[in-house]
Amino acid sequence: MTVTIKRAPKARFNWGKIATYVIVILVSLTMLAPFVWMLSASLKLNRDVFAFPIEWIPSEPRWRNYVDIWSKIPLGLFVYNTAKLTVIVTVLQLLTSSFAAYAFAKLRFPYRNALFLAYIATIAMPWQVYMVPQFLMMREFGLNNTHLALICLQAFTAFGVFLMRQFYMSIPDELCEAARIDGMSEYGIWRRIMLPLSMPALSTLTIFTFVNTWNDFLGPLIYLTRTELKTIQIGIRMFISQYSAEYGLIMAASVVALIPVLIVFLALQRFFVEGIASTGLKG
């Protein structure tokens, strides 16, 4: 008796995969379209911006737009102001948050939970709830129309402490204990053990802080009324109100405002999903 051995048929052609690609590409186009349109419009004359059908790649790109924007408004100053604020806020945020988070995650001291609760309770608190008293207080301190006011209100957030603490909780206590026995002070443990291990969390916090500070416009809108202090977001608003029909220039200025965020994001994004996953930001 011979048994014929047959090969089981291979699974059918994978239509699901094709459908996935189609949907992914369509969605990506939707997400991207406004940016592409922005870029394309930034290289056009005003009268061509709304031409239909849309000419996605301008036949005669008008690079002049990118030259003109710097002289129409003090865009360079605005970029400088924003960069200064963003860098200072991000550095302060990273340092003070990770410092405080270390104590909340790894040290025992009186009122630890009560203090941490004070942070948590304010995470759900809309900024707008207390932005008025905060503004009045800053005015009282004489910080109105200073960059210091914006630094103070953005550098010490509950979010930063919370994010870093969640990450530190995932680092085994044994590591700190081993370091203590090895003879390290708590400051040394923070500096030489915790910081080197918290790149994913620090990157995540950097992206959030950088993006929020760079893009913030309500804060600067309330606090900065003098032109030489303004940030780029307020600058673009100013530009729009002064040259409302200069579509090409408006778009060029908007592209300039987007670029730094894009760079920071692309540089740090490989840590981002890992950072979100390991900091318990997913709940």
Partner: peptide, 16 residues
């Protein structure tokens, strides 16, 4: 790409 609108400047994208 999907994440980019989140980090993009609100002022800029609102204009667009």
């Amino acid at each position: 790409i999907a994440f980019f609108p989140y980090v993009a400047s609100l002022v800029a994208v609102a204009v667009v």
